[in-house]
């Protein structure tokens, strides 16, 4: 189910939380919502899930605006920020309750619950009360309740907070698999997460969308500089430093570690420096021990776009 958002705005008293944003998400696409705290991510998600009403603007679900709002909500799976849960309920009962509310056929509920328990790795904890669970397991329960009714649209507000690295990898895999057939929007602070899971990134700052595209596209858009880390043996640090510095297209050379002759080289253009560095070493009979290319990090793009 496609999601088309047009000129959505929401104002809290004097502050514009979301300011005239438009975007669309296609079925089978995972979109990452990025932005600093208070940028309007959660507000946007709350409007997408119909929890709060926008001041102006429109959201179209699957091209149809006629369907009643309860039908739309049935098509959405939502993991809210802070993952609220009924603490006093056992995991299985809770999942059954959520499935029933989302209109899952009563006869299918037990099998659905079992499926979710397996899919989200809840098997060892399934009979415990939610209040007894660790944060990682609570997060899985939150995710399980969001997908138990097989929704066409998934909206996840910071799905991996509180998980350990192994769990993060598992949950990312799960989201990726779900994203093959669903429309997924997830928000996060963790930049590598977006690179790992999302097809597209929306960067939002002060209620406005400041970037929209694939990770690769965003890199191209932002000032592209190549960074190389090299380790060269065969001469004094100072001499190598001078030679590197005098190469054409080199913007800056940093000595990272003097003892090991490690340098960081930033290029001036988009042209890669690898060849030039290699040739330089060959002609001087130096030994090139390490050469690691670094791309402009998403962190830098993010900072460029969101810090004024």
């Amino acid at each position: 189910m496609d999601l088309i958002v047009s000129s959505l705005s929401k104002r809290y008293e004097s502050q514009k939380a979301v300011d005239d944003i438009s975007f669309s998400v296609k079925s089978g696409e995972i979109v990452g919502f990025l932005g600093p705290n208070g940028a309007g991510k959660t507000t946007t998600m709350k409007m997408l899930t119909q929890y709060i009403a926008p001041d102006s603007g429109q959201i179209q679900y699957g091209g149809s605006t006629s369907s009643s709002s309860l039908d739309i909500r049935r098509a959405i799976g939502y993991l809210p920020e802070h993952n609220p849960l009924y603490e006093d309920m056992p995991v299985m009962d809770y999942l059954g309750f959520c499935a029933a509310l989302q209109g899952v056929n009563p006869s299918e509920i037990p099998s659905k619950v079992r499926e979710m328990v397996v899919k989200c790795g809840l098997d060892v904890e399934k009979h415990k009360k939610i209040t007894e669970l660790s944060k990682g397991f609570r997060q899985r329960v939150g995710l399980a309740q969001a997908i138990i009714h097989n929704p066409k649209i998934l909206i996840l507000d910071e799905p991996t907070t509180g998980l350990d690295p192994n769990q993060i990898v598992e949950i990312r895999e799960l989201i990726k698999n779900l994203g093959k057939e669903k429309t997924v929007i997830l928000s996060t602070h963790i930049l590598p997460e977006v690179e790992a899971t999302c097809d597209r990134i929306l960067i939002i700052n002060k209620g406005k969308i400041v970037a929209d595209g694939t990770v690769a596209n965003l890199r191209k858009q932002s000032e592209s500089r190549q960074i190389l880390r090299v380790r060269i043996d065969g001469a004094e640090t100072e001499r190598i430093y001078q030679s590197l510095q005098s190469m054409p297209d080199v913007r800056m050379v940093d000595i990272l570690q003097q003892a090991e002759n490690k340098f960081e080289i930033q290029s001036n253009s988009e042209l890669p420096l690898n060849r030039e560095v290699f040739k330089l070493c060959v002609s001087n009979h130096w030994e090139l021990l390490e050469m690691i290319p670094f791309e402009t990090k998403l962190e830098d793009i993010f900072r460029d776009l969101t810090v004024n």
Partner: peptide, 14 residues
């Protein structure tokens, strides 16, 4: 207080 109302009202519950 716990935010579970958001959970309910974003499901098919009026």
């Amino acid at each position: 207080k716990t935010g579970t109302i958001e959970l309910l009202l974003t499901k098919a519950v009026s």
